[in-house]
Design a protein around this nucleic acid. Structure first.
Lengths: 207, 207
DNA sequence: AAATATACTAAACAGTGTTTATTAAAAACA
DNA sequence: TGTTTTTAATAAACACTGTTTAGTATATTT
C-alpha cells in the first residue's frame, strides 16, 4: 500500500512550495511584506492551508532560517581552500561579512529576529544551526592554536565568542543603518579599516 | 496675548503625556504590545488624538529613543570619576553592558530597530544621539592615546568603531538569545570572560 | 455503494497603524 | 454681547495582520 508514502511525499512537496514562496517574498520584499496572506496568494492556496503544513508563522520562519544557514554554510566551505589557518580565519570573516551584506534579510532572521528562536523553544529544541556554524569557527580557531598562530593558554570558546561578537556587531551596526552617523560615504571603507585593525589585534595579542 | 503660549504649553504637556504612556507600556510589556490603541487607552484619549501630536508611530518611537539616549548618557556620566583613562574606558564598557541588560527594550530601540532611523530620514535629520554617545567614546579613546595607553599611530575613529562593534555584538548575541547555543547556564560568565579577553586585547595590541 | 477520513477554504475573530468626516468647545471678530 | 472662525477630539472606517472555526468537496477505506 504506497498511498501513505505518496501522501507523505505530497505533504513534503507542499511544505516546499510554501517555503519557496516564503523565501521569494522574504528576499524580494523583506520581512515586513512577507505575510501569510501574501504567501497564500503566490502559491494560489487559501491562507488557512498554510496552517495545515506549518504550526504558525514562527515555525515557517524557522524553516526559512534553516535554509538560510544551509546557504551560509555552503559559502563558508569555500574558505577550506586557504592553506594557512590564520588566513583561513580571516577568509571566514570576509565570507561572513559578504553573506550578511548580500543577504541582509536572512542575516536578520538568523541572528537578530526572535521568531525562529521562539519556534525552537516551543519544540523544546536547541539552536543546532547556530551551534554548527559556531563549530566551524571553533575548528579554525583550534587549528590556529595548534599551528602556533595563537598561544596555548587561550580558551577557544572565549576567543570564538569574542571574534563572533565583533563580527556580528560590525555587521548589525552597518545593516541597521547606525553607520549613517558618519556623515561621509565611507561606510564600507570604515568597515574594512576596522576589520583590518581587528585582524591585527588578533595577530598581536594572541601570539 | 498669552493664549498662544498657553496653547503651546498644553501641546507640550500632551506630547509628554503620550510619551510617558508609551514609555510605560514599552518598559512593562515590550515593543510588541506597545500599540497606539494601548497608549490611547492608558491616557484615556482616542487613538486618533495621538496623531495630532505625533506624525506616526515612527516619530513617537523616535521621541522615546531620544529619552532612552538621555538615560544612557546620564548613566555614562558616572564613569567620569575614574581617574585612569584606560580604566575609564573599561568602566564605560561595563556601564554599556549594564544599561543594555537592564533596558533591553530601549537598547533595541536605540541600536537595532529601524523605526527611529526611518523617522529621522523622513525629517532629513542626522542621528545626533548616536553621534553624541559615540563622541563620548571618542573622547576617552583620544585620552587613552594622549596618556600613552594607546600608541600614537592609531586612528581614533577606527578604534572606536571596533570597540563599539565588539560591545554591540556581544550584547545583541545575548539579548537576542543567541547564547542559548551554549547549553549550560554560564551565559553571563562567558560574557564576562569575553569582555576581559577583549580588554586584554586592547591593552596588548594598542600599546 | 455507503461510510469514513482527508484536503481545502470561506468567513470570522481579534488585533494592528492610519485617515476621514463629524462634533463640541474655545478663540477671534464684529 | 452675538456671530463667525478656528481648534481639539473622536467615532467610524480602511486596509492590513496572524490565526481559528465550521463547512464542503474529494479521496480513501470499508
Amino acid at each position: 500500500m504506497g498511498i501513505t508514502e505518496r501522501k507523505e511525499r505530497e505533504r513534503e512537496e507542499m511544505r516546499h512550495l510554501i517555503l519557496n514562496a516564503a523565501q521569494k517574498l522574504f528576499l524580494e520584499n523583506g520581512y515586513e511584506k512577507t505575510s501569510i496572506r501574501g504567501i497564500a496568494d503566490v502559491i494560489e492556496y487559501s491562507p488557512a492551508t498554510i496552517y495545515l503544513y506549518y504550526k504558525d508563522k514562527n515555525e515557517l520562519l524557522l524553516a526559512l532560517h534553516v535554509v538560510a544557514f544551509q546557504k551560509m554554510m555552503q559559502e563558508f566551505s569555500e574558505v577550506a581552500v586557504v592553506e594557512n589557518s590564520f588566513e583561513r580565519l580571516v577568509s571566514l570573516g570576509k565570507q561572513y561579512i559578504k553573506f550578511a551584506i548580500e543577504n541582509p534579510g536572512l542575516y536578520d532572521l538568523m541572528f537578530i529576529m526572535q521568531a525562529p528562536i521562539e519556534a525552537l523553544a516551543c519544540k523544546d529544541e536547541v539552536w543546532e544551526d547556530g551551534m554548527k556554524s559556531f563549530d566551524f569557527l571553533r575548528i579554525i580557531v583550534t587549528e590556529c592554536k595548534n599551528k602556533g598562530h595563537f598561544r596555548e593558554n587561550l580558551d577557544v570558546d572565549t576567543v570564538c565568542l569574542t571574534i563572533w561578537s565583533y563580527m556580528h556587531g560590525l555587521i548589525t551596526i552597518y545593516l541597521k543603518n547606525r553607520m549613517d552617523m558618519f556623515e561621509d560615504d565611507r561606510q564600507m571603507d570604515r568597515m574594512q579599516e576596522s576589520f583590518q585593525l581587528f585582524i591585527e589585534m588578533l595577530k598581536v595579542s594572541f601570539k
